[in-house]
Amino acid sequence: MALGNPVFANDKNFGKQPPQFPGAAPQGYPQGYPGAPTQGYAQQGYAPTGYAPGQQPLSPEQLQQMYNQPPASNAQMGRMTVDDVIVKTIGTLLVVLVGAGLGWVFPVLALPGAIIGLVLGLVNSFKREPSKVLILTYALFEGMFLGGISGILENLYSGIVVQAVLGTLIVFALTLVLYKSGKFRATPKMTKFFMIALGGYAIFSLVNFGLMMFNVTNQPWGLRSVEVFGIPLGVIIGILAIGLAAFSLMLDFTSIEQGVKNGLPAKYSWSAAFGLTVTLVWLYVEILRVLAILRGND
């Protein structure tokens, strides 16, 4: 079973090998490489692969020169690369920052940003082919939401935004180090547990949002403000959510590694960038909320 971020789960191209054709050169070699399969073509009256009708065979020196050539890189072959994912992720996050600036100055944009960002996030998640325009549009509106709530909370608790940003960067860095070390991997069993926990968290969040919308509770954070053994439930749930977001990052890294290994087309770098952006936004929001609950409970 291929592992990966749920954002990639609906993209059946992730985790699959590119198609192979009879007589085609292996990955990294030009068509017509020495020794390419010729069975089936010569019998049909066609020249062997790499030779035009009447063309003389290559000399030993020419063959040796061809063999000495380095294999073509993924970038040269129009395939997904880690560098490409990094560049596109940085670009997407910069658009998030632009939207955040607008939301910070105009907090009224937070609500429409949240609604439109959610809709575009779902559209991008279930879309078979990645769309650069839709992904960047999502980043802009999601940034408006982040900027709006960040500005409001910063006015209440000075310095909370810097703390949340630092917390997000630390969790990201630690998760990446653990992944690169090979000591922690997203196993099928862990992924199954993650999906169950994620579903439970989503149900809790929807119920809590409904209670707050219909004024069933007047607590600022709804059920999250309820204390369990003197600890706000929001802190307990928040720490769990941060752990889920960190594991989602692990799934992102796994999906990217598999995509590069299997030689996916370069356009799927946008899918990888979108997945990382969604996870980082989620991680930041959870850390920001936990900090706000803790500081509001002082």
Rank of each mutant, 00 (worst) to 15 (best):
R128M: 04
R128A: 14
E129M: 08
E129Y: 05
S131M: 03
S131H: 06
S131D: 13
K132D: 04
V133K: 06
V133S: 10
L134H: 06
I135Y: 05
I135K: 02
T137A: 15
T137P: 03
T137W: 08
T137S: 10
T137Y: 09
T137V: 15
T137R: 00
Y138K: 07
L140G: 12
L140I: 06
L140M: 14
F141Y: 10
F141P: 05
E142L: 02
E142Q: 14
G143F: 13
G143V: 13
M144P: 01
M144E: 04
M144C: 06
M144N: 00
M144A: 00
F145P: 00
L146M: 15
L146T: 02
G147D: 06
G148A: 11
G148F: 09
G148Y: 08
I149E: 09
I149R: 05
S150F: 03
G151L: 08
I152C: 02
I152T: 10
L153S: 11
L153G: 01
E154K: 05
N155E: 10
N155R: 07
L156N: 13
L156F: 09
L156S: 08
Y157Q: 15
Y157D: 06
S158T: 13
S158Q: 14
S158M: 04
S158E: 14
G159A: 12
G159F: 08
G159D: 12
I160A: 02
I160D: 04
I160V: 11
I160F: 12
V161I: 15
V162P: 00
V162N: 03
Q163P: 00
Q163S: 10
Q163L: 14
Q163C: 03
V165S: 03
L166M: 13
L166E: 02
G167D: 04
T168R: 05
T168K: 03
T168M: 15
L169T: 14
L169E: 02
I170T: 11
I170N: 07
I170E: 06
I170V: 14
V171L: 03
F172D: 03
A173R: 00
L174S: 04
L174E: 08
L174P: 02
L174C: 07
L176A: 11
L176S: 06
L176Q: 14
V177A: 15
L178Q: 02
L178T: 01
Y179R: 07
Y179D: 14
K180N: 13
S181L: 15
G182S: 06
G182K: 04
G182L: 11
K183R: 10
K183V: 10
F184G: 00
F184R: 10
R185K: 15
R185W: 00
R185A: 14
R185G: 05
R185C: 07
A186T: 04
T187D: 07
T187K: 11
P188W: 04
P188Y: 13
P188T: 12
P188S: 12
K189N: 01
M190D: 12
M190I: 05
M190H: 11
T191E: 15
T191Y: 13
